[in-house]
């Protein structure tokens, strides 16, 4: 057997093919159901997550627990490849508001260390229904009406970020 052929296929080609098929299938399943590669598109999560970068999602993150305030979540859009990436601000049953850019939960100011600079976001007190979360991006330079922020159902939260 020529050297190049051994290098390419190994001494037992059918075993090499089988290994490649198993590895390919495992990578596909892990990528689809557990840790999908995520290509970030848009400025909504600046400065935490930058436009055009790649991250690794974690679809198992909220299997056994619910998202907590401050955590990043992937929210289902359509199919298996497209997600909104947002931060959880309001939990079910809480009342959320924004006053001069400050986040208020149940009337109390909640610090947001991940936000860079100040904003003029304003939102009247809004109760987050049971089974839903209030989510928003970190980029407060975008006016609230132009920002994709608001209520999302727990069932639409597909996971979080691994990295």
């Amino acid at each position: 057997m020529p050297t190049w052929s051994i290098w390419l296929w190994g001494r037992r080609p059918h075993v090499t093919l089988l290994r490649a098929a198993v590895l390919g299938t495992a990578l596909y399943l892990v990528g689809r159901y557990a840790f999908p590669p995520v290509h970030v598109s848009g400025l909504s999560m600046e400065p935490t997550v930058h436009d055009g970068t790649w991250r690794i999602g974690n679809k198992l993150k909220f299997h056994n627990r619910d998202p907590q305030r401050g955590e990043l979540v992937m929210i289902r859009m359509a199919g298996w490849h497209a997600y909104y990436l947002k931060r959880v601000l309001g939990l079910p049953g809480e009342t959320i508001a924004f006053r001069s850019g400050a986040l208020l939960i149940n009337g109390h100011v909640v610090p947001e260390p991940y936000v860079d600079g100040t904003s003029d976001w304003a939102l009247n007190p809004t109760r987050v229904p049971e089974g839903e979360y209030f989510v928003a991006g970190d980029n407060r330079a975008v006016p609230l009406p132009a920002h994709k922020a608001g209520l999302t159902r727990r069932s639409d939260i597909a996971g979080g970020l691994l990295w």
């Binding site: 929210i75 359509a78 909104y84 809004t126 209030f134 608001g150 209520l151 999302t152």
Partner: peptide, 10 residues
Amino acid sequence: PGESIRRPGA
């Protein structure tokens, strides 16, 4: 629109 994020009150 079939958004999974909706404005409060919408």
